[in-house]
Each structure stands twice: as C-alpha cells, then as structure tokens.
Design a protein around this nucleic acid. Structure first.
Lengths: 244, 244
DNA sequence: TGAATAGTGTCTTTCAGACAATATGCC
DNA sequence: GGCATATTGTCTGAAAGACACTATTCA
C-alpha cells in the first residue's frame, strides 16, 4: 500500500466525526449509557422515547442515551446524555446492569449500561418538549417497536422498578412534593399492574413511617378533601449517589 | 512530521501489545469483565483471587478478569477470562452491574462489568491450582487489600448473592450433586452470616419443593447417617443463560 | 339530599421464629 | 451404654389479605 493512501486511511480512521465513525474506528467495544425515564401522566406510567433521525433504526423509537465521555463517571454520563437529549435534569437515577450481546448494534460492538430514572410530572419543564419534535412519552403498556435491544432494557427497568418499590421509598419520585394517599396508591398500582385494597395499602404505608402529614388538604371536585402528605426522610429525597 | 515517522507512530499505535498499550491508545473508555468466584471449602465461604504480576497494584490481590474481545457476548467474556486465568470452567455466572468510576483504574478509563460465579468444591480440578502459583482462595471474612475497586465489587457480589439466595435456588451450585440438609444449611448460614434453626430451615426448604430425596444416605463419623438430596428441577441445573 | 371520593377496623390466614425430645449409627 | 449427629412438631407473634361502612364536601 502506498504511504500516501495509507496515511490518508489512517488519518480518516483517527478522526471521529460521529457515532458511526467512532464505531468503525476501533477494534474494541464501545460503551454507551441508555436511560429509561419513567413518569406518571394522566394516571398512566410512561416512558420517554426519542425518534431516531439516522440509521440504523431510522425513525424507530429509542431510549435517550449516548456515548460515555472519557472523564465521566457512569451516572454522570447517564445524567448528561439525558439532559442533552431531553433537557430533563434532576432525576432519580439507578443503574440496571450492562447489556452486551455482541450483535445488539448492527454498526459494531457496543455495550450499553442501562439506567432507570424517575421524574414527577410537575418537575418536567414543558420546554423540554417544545424544541424536540421527535421526543414523546409512551405508555408502558402500549410501546412501539424499539430500536436495538431497547425493549429488553425497558422490560428490565420495569421489573427492577417493581422490585425496588417494595424495598425502597422511591414512589415519591414520581409524585409532587405533597400528595394524597390515593395518588400514592395509584403509583403503586401502575407499577405493580394490579389493584390494591385501600385499607390495607394505607395500613402498610402508615406503618412504614415513610410519610409525614403536612396538615394541608387538597380539594378536587365536589367531595371530601384529602390530606396531603410528604415523605418523612428528607435525606432520602436528595438524589441517590450510588457508587459506580 | 515526516511521513515515515508518522507511519511508524501510527503503526505503533495500531498494535496492541498488552493491556497497558490498549489503555493508552484509545480516547474511549475500555471495557473489562471481573468475576467474583465463590466456593465453599472447609466450611468457609471463599473467593478466588489472583496476585498481580505487573503494575499498577503489582503483588496486590485482584479478581480474575480481563478485556472483552470484540465478538464476545458479555457472559462469554466473563467465562473466557475466568477460564484463561484460572482454568475454572462450567460455573454458574450472574451479572452484578457495571462499575465505572472515572478514576477506578490509574492507567486510564476502564469500565468493568462485574459478575459473581458459583462453583462447588468438587467441581474444582486440583490442576487449576498446580500451574498457578499466584492464585488462591481467600475467606470472605479475611480478605487482603484488593487492587482497583475490587473490594467494592466483592462486597456487591456478597450482597447480591445473599439477596438471590432468598429468591432463587442457587445454593446447590456450591454443593456436590447429592448433599445432606445439614450441608445445605451450612451454605445458607455462611452466606447470610448467621446461624439458622435446624427445624425451621428444614421446614422451609422442604415446603419449597426444591429438593428431591435420592433415597441414599451418607455416613460420616460414628453417628446416624444423613439422607442425601438433590435439586428437583433439573432445568435449573443447566447453566443459566441470561440475556445480555 | 345526592354524588363523589376520603377515611377507618376486624377477622382470617399465612409465614417466620422460638423451642426440645427422639432416632440411628458406631465405638 | 455412650457419643455424635439426624430427624421431627407445636406454639406464638407479625404481617398480609379479604371485606363494608361512615365522613365530608359541594352542587
């Protein structure tokens, strides 16, 4: 091979233009993060999806995410890619696991670290949607076909979320700061996908000591107003800094 | 820069000699797998560690593991690196999660996917130790200082193992095919780090339907022989192929 | 007073945990 | 018989689950 064309080829390879060139350049697996962001809207559990603008899977829906930069901790990478792609910040983030089937990305070898995130509808800035035509919330029960193995990641997130619900006070991450017991029960019912008994639910929640009565009430419609509660442990409210 | 030296430099960069050159070559995070291999020996829960022969952390103890090859699924990579470094094969493998603090490897940006593995002492070939002077089992209660963030990975593995013990029949992975109820109870006690009541333990285990009475007995010492059991679900005995 | 949701208590069943005596084998 | 471990059942307390009526607000 002539030195000139060889240099050219090498120089070409050395330059990263976009995701695809990064993928073909190296002989090592690349690493991305993908975030399954949940919220509750209109009494439905929803996931934020982005419609892809490029191949592969052009026009398909996919999870927000992207490549990890060289100096970023994993959680930071997840936060940053989510913020860049969706303008959503200050979410509760938890790692699921790594997803690394050798053929999960047709462009090359890409391992992704999946996260789930929770955000309450009230914390969502409407601007996040304004500039992003190809970004939308989808009910977890009516998901479109997803790009890559993102369906597996979403399903893993749903299972993990349900398991965490029983062991960790995370449901409030999907609610406003002050909420009624009925609203809290709705969140549990949506995640567990089954109806719960009102008396048993309240008995259990109140016994757990998670909640603090704010003394305020909430009127909505022509009926008895409901007590408003907040989560008792303010320590738990700060974003969970997990070791990664 | 003269073309010749440029080509030379590029060619140099293109060649991966060892882990360190791979680490300095790329501007992207690299990915490894690390395996926390547990076994029960002499009534102790032990972890397999390797003494490092090179910097960083030279002479420190570390988990078996290594770089993921371009075509390997994650689990395959874990199996292969474990086999290469320790000659141990046919283990039960389960992913923990990705560990990716930006500074966890002083050589550069390395993200590792942690696994835990279970192997029964009887399945361990003695040869695995013969050729490997720098490879040894360590009691989980008396671990030396570990390289990198491997202590965090081991602690995560212990927590995960304990959690899985309650939800999945995995304890038999640490036992011979046929075992006594007392032996099974020892495994539970070692992992949970507390003593269990013999009657309550047997009641629960037998109620779960996990076990099958082999009809055989085991004599050991001058006392009543114990019944030998095996795990009932042969499906569960095959190595668990998880989606990655 | 009618409509709509908030709020509350009892009974039953199930599961976890404390607890001790008998059985079997070999010396 | 003595020794060592295997094997077995009852009682109690806690938590989960089934179940129905009263309270409050406004039109």
């Amino acid at each position: 091979m002539a030195p000139d064309s060889f240099i050219e080829e090498i120089q070409q390879k050395q330059k990263i233009h976009d995701e695809t060139s990064a993928l073909t350049r190296y002989e090592v697996p690349l690493v991305t993060v993908d975030v399954v962001l949940f919220t509750v809207q209109d009494s439905r559990l929803k996931v934020l999806l982005i419609q892809r603008k490029s191949d592969p899977f052009i026009h398909s829906w996919a999870l927000p995410g992207g490549f990890i930069h060289i100096g970023e901790h994993l959680v930071e990478a997840a936060k940053n890619r989510l913020a860049e792609e969706t303008s959503v910040t200050d979410v509760y983030l938890q790692q699921l696991r790594a997803f690394g089937k050798a053929n999960r990305d047709p462009r090359g070898r890409v391992i992704t670290v999946g996260f789930y995130a929770l955000v309450s509808a009230e914390r969502l800035r409407p601007e996040a949607h304004a500039n992003a035509e190809h970004l939308d919330w989808h009910c977890v029960t009516e998901l479109p076909e997803l790009a890559f193995d993102h369906r597996l990641i979403v399903d893993t997130a749903l299972d993990t979320l349900e398991a965490h619900l029983e062991t960790t006070p995370i449901a409030y991450q999907l609610l406003p700061k002050k909420f009624t017991l009925t609203e809290l029960q709705r969140v549990y019912e949506l995640i567990k996908e089954k109806q719960l008994d009102k008396r048993n639910f309240r008995k259990k929640i109140m016994a757990s000591g998670m909640l603090k009565d704010t003394g305020e009430t909430k009127m909505e419609g022509y009926h008895r107003p409901a007590q408003l509660y907040s989560f008792a442990d303010t320590e738990l409210k700060v974003m969970h800094a997990q070791p990664v």
